[in-house]
Amino acid sequence: MTFVPDLTRRAVLRVGASASAAAMGAWALSALVDPPQPQAAPLSPTPFEPSTASSNLPNKLTGSFISKARGGVKTNWVIALPPGQTSQSGLLPAVIALHGKDGDANMMLDCGVEDALARLVKEGKPPFAVVGVDGGSDSYWHKRADGTDSGAMVIDELLPMLGSMGLDTSRVGFMGWSMGGYGALRLGAKLGPSRTAGICAISPALYTSYADCAPKAFDSEEDWMANSVMGLPALSQIPLRVDCGTFDRFYPATRQFVSQLKTPPAVSFTIGGHDMTWWRLQLPGELSWLAT
């Protein structure tokens, strides 16, 4: 696997609406969603060459690799570090941040991760790195009928790469938005309690029936059933936080998911929709929860 420096980054999403306006109107954007899918067959571990990543801003590293699990495509990654830290700073723990439908590795930056990490340092919270990675516009972080598997990319390619760069991947955290919220639940459960320190699922793309699923979320009803996160024992054994706006189209399914867990998770159900403004408002509390 060859790592390629990539210092480009799309401009941070402009959020012009105020929080109060979003609370009343952002739920109209709830139609922009994402769905889930089948479990990936484990891939043989791929040897990693020393990273050639470059830093283009303080406390941020960017780069890319060619992912076998994703069919040989270039896969970008971003690591946001707390102020004053490096990837070698005493084996920083890693939180893997999974983007939503039509998103990419930079989504966690758009949500304000860099500022939130700086706030945690000022508050004296334990430091950790947040890692974003391209998973594909509608991969839903699982194995697809075409053979690609973004979930396997995270577990079998990204995590070993991060370990080779000096981050602590013995136990990792997961967080994700919409499609990525579903993916965080699925991948955290797949790694299990021994390797997953915590999961924060934000506006997770959950469905109560195959008929309700967004296009391309699953390849078939069998695929949807095989990759459901409902009833997974591991999710009652891993520290879990679930956040969802009460005007979000996924709110009913998210409530149903929370109600079936044997161990009640931390939850935040507040007025809001399926949009960047609401996600940015929630982020500081979510990272604080992950830190503790």
Rank of each mutant, 00 (worst) to 15 (best):
residue 143 K to A: 15
residue 201 A to W: 03
residue 250 F to W: 03
residue 283 L to M: 13
residue 246 T to D: 01
residue 81 L to T: 02
residue 222 E to W: 00
residue 254 T to V: 14
residue 60 K to I: 14
residue 123 E to D: 15
residue 195 R to M: 08
residue 176 G to L: 02
residue 169 T to D: 00
residue 250 F to Y: 10
residue 66 I to R: 13
residue 164 S to W: 03
residue 198 G to S: 08
residue 101 K to Y: 15
residue 182 Y to A: 07
residue 229 V to Y: 04
residue 169 T to N: 01
residue 125 K to C: 13
residue 74 K to S: 11
residue 197 A to I: 06
residue 127 P to K: 09
residue 125 K to D: 12
residue 272 G to Y: 01
residue 121 V to N: 03
residue 237 Q to T: 07
residue 92 L to A: 04
residue 5 P to M: 11
residue 108 M to E: 09
residue 223 D to C: 06
residue 115 D to S: 14
residue 278 W to N: 06
residue 109 L to R: 10
residue 274 H to C: 02
residue 100 G to F: 02
residue 242 V to Y: 02
residue 242 V to M: 02
residue 219 D to F: 00
residue 45 P to D: 11
residue 50 P to L: 09
residue 225 M to T: 09
residue 105 A to D: 09
residue 19 A to C: 09
residue 242 V to A: 00
residue 61 L to D: 02
residue 190 K to D: 10
residue 268 S to C: 12
residue 185 L to T: 06
residue 75 T to I: 04
residue 109 L to M: 13
residue 104 D to K: 08
residue 281 L to S: 14
residue 145 A to T: 12
residue 211 A to T: 12
residue 225 M to R: 13
residue 136 G to F: 01
residue 114 E to S: 14
residue 211 A to K: 12
residue 78 V to F: 06
residue 250 F to A: 08
residue 99 H to A: 10
residue 61 L to A: 05
residue 58 P to H: 11
residue 289 W to C: 08
residue 221 E to P: 00
residue 228 S to A: 10
residue 19 A to W: 06
residue 210 Y to A: 09
residue 70 R to E: 10
residue 170 S to T: 13
residue 10 R to T: 11
residue 227 N to K: 04
residue 14 R to L: 12
residue 55 S to N: 11
residue 183 G to F: 03
residue 155 I to M: 07
residue 198 G to D: 00
residue 218 F to N: 08
residue 66 I to S: 12
residue 169 T to H: 02
residue 14 R to H: 12
residue 75 T to K: 01
residue 201 A to Q: 01
residue 96 I to N: 01
residue 118 A to Y: 04
residue 259 S to R: 10
residue 42 P to Q: 08
residue 279 W to R: 05
residue 192 G to R: 03
residue 245 G to C: 04
residue 242 V to P: 00
residue 139 S to H: 03
residue 109 L to F: 11
residue 126 P to N: 10
residue 180 G to Q: 03
residue 285 G to R: 09
residue 137 S to I: 12
residue 286 E to S: 13
residue 17 A to T: 10
residue 168 D to W: 07
residue 118 A to M: 06
residue 47 P to Q: 11
